[in-house]
Every structure is written in C-alpha cells, then in structure tokens.
Nucleic acid binder design. Structure first.
Length: 192
DNA sequence: GCAAGGATGGCG
DNA sequence: GCCATCCTTGCG
C-alpha cells in the first residue's frame, strides 16, 4: 500500500488528529516490516497550548521540526523512551499530533521480539511502547511520513471516534482539561 | 556547568 | 502510587 500523500496532512490539527485514527503506521527495517493501526492520538496546539513543547513559540533544537511542514515526524525522548508525533499545520505554526497507541497489524513476531509481553494487548498500547515495538528512534526525527521507510497509509475507517482529556500533562493549568485526546471507541489497544 | 522536571512504563 | 533514568531546558 502506498503512503498517504503529503496533501493528506493539510488539515487543521484537530481534524488531522481524528483523520489519523484508523490509518496504518508502517516501518520498514532490515529486520522486517512492522505496522499497526493508529487507535489513539492527541493534538498539541502550539503557541497557545501550555502542554505543547512549542508553547509561547518556544523554539529550540528539539522543537524546531514542529515549525516545519505538516507530515514530518517529530520524535523526542521522554525519560527513557522515544515518542512520535506528526507535525501539523502550516510553516511556523508549531502544532503536532502525538500517536499514543496502535493496534498491531504486520510483523507482530518482530514487535514481540523487540518488546516481549505476555498479552498482545500490551504490545503497542502506549506512546513509548509502540515506538520500541516498531523500531522508531530519534533517527526518525524530521522524516517525512509520506515516504519509506517510515510512513502512514490507508487502513480502516473507524466506526466511532470519542474524545477526552489528554494524558500526563497534570501540571499545565487549564490546558490539562482541553478535550484534545481522540481514540477509536471500544478499541482494546487504546492506552487506558 | 548544573539542577529541575517531564506528552512514560513497570512494578509493588 | 512510586521511582528508575536520561535528555532538554533555563539559568547562573
């Protein structure tokens, strides 16, 4: 399946966060191909979103890619883990969509080898878990997600999308209450 | 230089 | 609910 085209990412950030649900995230490596359906995302709305790394237009080496064009990968390190976002909105609008959970699809054996778990439900049901299972690292910082070897393609159309508060941003004032987390209703691979 | 603080995950 | 662990950031 071909990657979704660059034009796919030309959506308002909230719309993109929803549009990404059901899409297939694919990573090709020498070890093999892994992929999973995106089942949970969060929108980070840049300068006016206290929970965003780019709040108040903070522009550093880390956040620089958020000021780039939509469809690039923004990877960063959180504690000992790598998290992946899809850069959103126009140039100099530093928005991003965090990919929080996947439903494993291809290469499940390889993912289990990278990240052994008893139950397949726990393989990619968290932002740090899915990157480890798929072999996504800081090497992917700035990679265009409309190109191999790390790309997003058409998957399934979700039956119903639900929204709620974002996770893990307790110390961000009002921003913690914004309903900018989206997931596929009743999907067992959502993080919580 | 250095201290503080996470968009986490795993274990108790 | 606690903490390991380590990179980024802001400040001195």
């Amino acid at each position: 399946m071909d990657p979704l085209k660059e034009e796919f990412y030309q959506l308002p950030t909230i719309d993109l966060a929803k549009a990404l649900l059901g899409c297939l995230l694919v990573k090709e490596t020498e070890e093999g191909i892994t992929s999973g359906y995106i089942v949970e995302t969060e929108a980070y709305m840049g300068p006016h979103d206290r929970a965003a790394h780019s709040f108040n237009n903070r522009r550093t080496k880390r956040t620089e890619i958020m000021y780039g064009k939509a469809g690039l990968a923004y990877t960063y390190t959180m504690h000992t883990h790598c998290l992946i976002n899809v850069v959103s909105a126009g140039l100099d609008e530093p928005h991003a969509v965090l990919i929080r959970a996947l439903e494993p699809h291809d290469g499940i054996d390889l993912m289990l080898k990278r990240r052994p778990v008893d139950n397949k439900k726990n393989l990619t049901n968290g932002p740090g878990k899915l990157t480890k299972a798929m072999g996504i690292t800081m090497e992917d910082y700035g990679h265009p997600l409309f190109e191999s070897p790390l790309y997003i393609t058409h998957g399934i159309v979700p039956e119903e999308i639900v929204e709620g508060k974002r996770i893990g941003i307790e110390n961000t004032g009002e921003a913690r209450n914004y309903p900018w987390r989206f997931w596929i209703k009743d999907n067992p691979f959502v993080s919580r």
